[in-house]
Amino acid sequence: MRQIVLKAENLRLRFGGVVAADGASLTAHAGERIAIIGPNGAGKTTFVNICTGYLKPQSGAVIFEGKDITQLAPRTIARGGIGRSFQLPQLFLDNTVFENLLLALSAREGTWRPWMRLDRHPKADEMRDMLEVIGLSSVGDRPVRELPEGMRKLIDIALALALKPRLVFMDEPTSGVSSREKFSIMDTLVRALDHSATTAIFVEHDMDVVSRYADRVAVWTGGKIALEGTPEHVLNDPDVRKNVIGV
């Protein structure tokens, strides 16, 4: 049995009359890739936000590697080993791609020396290698602002992975990119995840991506998991096909 990395237990959160999490529970094991699917407003992003510290649940707990992280701040959780990427890439737009990664490297290493130039970070080569892995070496010196959405998605994920997290949450890693780009992004991403043996939980609307890259699928409805299992099992379920996939 693989080690449990994350255990979210009975999370509940309401915004006024809206139930965003209604007893949501999920367990992730080391090295797993779990896809979270479900209709809009089902509470998928809320779940990610709770697990990464952006939102605090009214009840329930998030246990990461045996430690309760429910009430911790996002930066404490990030330092503890959980990375995340966003539905809309959250990047330092005025900085170059390489500088974005070097800032993540400095964050991970705690290297904030005021006399050291960022571009001469002693471990800068590691980030050059990462640029190579995600196929963005050619644009390393360009400001992020100038790059298309697909590349920004990759950089956003790369920032999370640069922290060398043991668990990474990705909110719709292929949304807003062309159907041609999405598999290329996911292939690159899975290669990087496998390389670092990182557990991944990703919210996804594209069922081709889910069936191809997820080990396990959790169907979210009404702020909790309605069904959980292998992609074949879940994606062939009549209710899921009717209410989530829409066929």
Partner: peptide, 11 residues
């Protein structure tokens, strides 16, 4: 440019 991302880098 993006304080949210900085916090999610653990900074």
């Amino acid at each position: 440019s993006n304080e949210t991302r900085l916090e999610y880098l653990g900074v």
